[in-house]
Amino acid sequence: MALSNELIQEQLTNKFGEQLTNWEQQFGLLTFTAPAENNIEIMHYLYDNETLRFRFLTDLTAVHYPEKTGEELCVVYLLHNLIDNIRLRYKVYMPISQPDVQSVTSIFSSANWLEREAYDFFGVNFIGHPNLSRIMNVDDMDYFPMRKEYPMEDPTRRDKDDEMFGRGGSF
């Protein structure tokens, strides 16, 4: 039987029950939310299970929602089952004061730099990552630039302070 979104949802609910919430399908992509404490367990299950076989990590990224108190940071995993050609997305929310999540580098080697990038941009702390350091920005940077409160612009520039140049504008 071909693997479908409903089947995946059923299988995961049977295994993890109420832990997985916010099931939704947008543009045919099944999405759910998992607690940050056992994301590695879920990942292992998705990888090892003979029906699910999600063995390709397409993407891993983070999002910052300043308004959601207690779950400001979100890590999004996008998995792909190449055999049945079906994708799955799952999210893990965590508070910005303690942005801890388990690293999945033990399962996917590709997660290594993606997690470093998420750390560099958002400050997500991946527990168990072999080398969690900045990857894109200079090492002595003291903030996480992709968080919403930080400005995009280079603060040293003086010749572009006019609003007509797009600085300080409404966009």
């Binding site: 920005n137 630039p145 930080y150 995009m152 280079d154 603060p155 040293t156 520039r157 797009g166």
Partner: peptide, 8 residues
């Protein structure tokens, strides 16, 4: 690239 990481 008027951004924090690019030399202007």
């Amino acid at each position: 690239f008027d951004s924090y990481s690019v030399l202007q």
